[in-house]
């Protein structure tokens, strides 16, 4: 099994950390993982994306060319990555910010109002976790518990109080695609 994921959006939407948590969780489960960010003269509000590999076998190129899943948080990302998804792959669209529909009819498309759900939970910043929750429910590539464990390591003691909110966001995201 190999998941090749592109996660993309505006800088500040948490696309990099979403990818890192998935990578971290894969490592906790002893899978082969890699995380590759786009880097360059970029700024808050500009576009950002990362490539994540989670695999049972050693990873060759860390660059995702044929994505099994694309998670797009804003419209430019939909345009940029829609065509990279393989047939029957997953395309997760943040419908809070993307009003357009996908052009592809050979992939499984899910519209998730991630920002709306996050605001309802009390913190717009967890929109990324809503998307991650939906992604995990669809692919089951790693357990939600492993992501929570990864969160604990990333957050440390001082931000441990944010864990329940993130757990809720993951669960709400999963509900959207059940």
């Amino acid at each position: 099994m190999q998941e090749r994921v592109v996660i993309a959006g505006f800088g500040g939407q948490g696309v990099m950390s979403m990818g890192q948590l998935l990578t971290y969780a894969g490592m906790i489960e002893n899978k082969h993982v890699s995380w590759l960010p786009s880097y360059g003269p970029e700024m808050r509000g500009g576009t950002a994306n990362c490539n994540v590999m989670v695999s049972d076998d050693p990873i060759g190129s860390p660059i995702v060319t044929e994505a099994t899943t694309a998670v797009v948080m804003n419209l430019p990302s939909l345009y940029k990555f829609e065509d990279d998804v393989v047939k029957d792959g997953h395309l997760l669209i943040n419908s809070s910010l993307i009003e357009e529909e996908a052009n592809r009819d050979d992939v499984e498309v899910y519209y998730i109002p991630a920002n709306k759900i996050a605001v309802e939970l009390g913190n717009a910043k967890v929109a990324n976790m809503v998307m991650l929750g939906a992604y995990l429910e669809l692919t089951k590539i790693v357990k939600v518990e492993s992501v929570v464990e990864a969160l604990k390591k990333v957050f440390g003691e001082s931000k441990a109080h944010l864990i329940p909110l993130n757990e809720k966001a993951l669960a709400k995201g999963a509900e959207q695609v059940k």
């Binding site: 890192q20 990578t23 490592m27 993982v33 890699s34 995380w35 590759l36 960010p37 880097y39 990873i59 860390p62 660059i63």
Partner: peptide
């Protein structure tokens, strides 16, 4: 190269 420098792996 930039990729080795910027990417994350265990």
């Amino acid at each position: 190269d930039g990729m080795i420098g910027q990417m994350m792996e265990p």
